[in-house]
Simulated assay, not measured.
Amino acid sequence: MMQQLLFGILIAYVAGAILYFVGNKTENTQVLKFASIAVAIGGVFNLLLLLYRWNLTGRPPLSSGSDFLLCFSFVTIVMYMVYELKSKDKKAGGVIMVFAFLFILSIFVLMANQLNNAGPVMPALKSPWLTVHVMTAVLAYAAFALAAGFSARNIIKKNDTTNGEKIYHIVAWGFAMLSLSIVLGAIWAEQIWGSYWSWDPKETWALITWIIYALYLHLHRNRNWQGKRANIIVLAGFILVLFTFFGVNFLMSGMHSYA
């Protein structure tokens, strides 16, 4: 059941990406309509899989890498669909759907064994701080993915600057969520390990990511740091977000390795 739902999500998201690219290239509104439908179907499958995992394990689907990616992709899609419905702008849909497709594909490639794991979790993951810490991280990452999609679209379109303020507000909201996630994680760490900060690889790279986005927000009003430079910083921040998750989890040992 879970494998079938995951495969359905993958197909829907890649179909959505292709239809968005084709529809925007040809300016065909009917194709773009089908793209939105494909994304909505994928989002429903994504939600069903999260609910299935919750029912199977008896706990919120937040304690493994595959759970996080399912939440990450779902929240990213929901944020994008809300934006699309409000603005009627579908120009960045293809890039954002490529992100969502790659998140789901990475579960197939790297974490397929986690989907069927419904056993008990280690004591550190039973803390109520886990839910608020991980959910704020999901919200932050999804906002950064959305901003990166718009920035990538700007670069593809030769540094279109028409949505610079929109990207700024999305990053600012994501930055607030990331800051909250770091604070909540520190409280959780103190309760579990007796220290608010231990320079664990995940903590260190989360801090580096925070600094990059803080730099972007600080430089936003500077005319010399708008347009191409601003888009590059947003994309660099999102690359750090991905490294903080994938690179640290799979390449570095630390207290977060269980994720």
Rank of each mutant, 00 (worst) to 15 (best):
221 R>K: 13
37 I>V: 14
79 M>S: 10
30 Q>M: 10
133 H>R: 01
185 G>N: 08
253 S>T: 15
44 V>D: 06
213 Y>T: 05
11 I>S: 02
211 I>D: 08
95 V>P: 00
146 L>N: 04
67 D>M: 03
222 N>V: 09
21 F>L: 06
102 L>P: 01
192 I>C: 00
99 F>E: 05
82 V>H: 03
226 Q>G: 05
193 W>R: 03
128 P>T: 06
245 F>L: 09
119 G>P: 06
151 S>E: 15
127 S>L: 07
69 L>P: 01
138 V>T: 06
211 I>R: 00
230 A>N: 06
109 V>Y: 09
231 N>Y: 13
228 K>S: 05
119 G>Y: 11
31 V>Q: 06
8 G>N: 10
239 I>K: 00
242 L>E: 10
240 L>F: 15
118 A>V: 13
100 A>I: 12
150 F>M: 10
104 I>W: 08
253 S>N: 15
5 L>P: 01
243 F>W: 14
209 T>S: 09
147 A>S: 13
17 A>Y: 06
253 S>C: 00
223 R>N: 11
93 G>N: 07
20 Y>Q: 04
12 A>W: 09
13 Y>H: 09
91 K>V: 07
53 R>W: 07
103 F>G: 00
114 Q>Y: 07
104 I>R: 01
169 H>P: 00
34 F>I: 02
224 N>A: 15
2 M>T: 01
240 L>S: 13
62 L>N: 04
176 A>D: 11
89 D>H: 10
117 N>V: 06
74 F>V: 07
141 Y>A: 08
258 Y>A: 03
219 L>S: 08
158 K>M: 05
135 M>F: 09
94 G>I: 10
81 M>S: 13
20 Y>I: 03
172 A>K: 13
39 V>D: 09
232 I>W: 13
201 P>L: 13
8 G>F: 12
106 S>I: 07
22 V>T: 11
63 S>Y: 11
26 T>F: 09
6 L>R: 05
99 F>H: 05
49 L>A: 03
166 K>Y: 15
102 L>Y: 11
106 S>E: 10
257 S>A: 14
123 P>Y: 11
155 I>P: 02
161 T>L: 09
154 N>V: 02
83 Y>M: 02
195 S>L: 12
42 G>A: 07
130 L>C: 01
58 G>P: 08
255 M>H: 06
53 R>T: 03
234 V>W: 08
72 F>L: 13
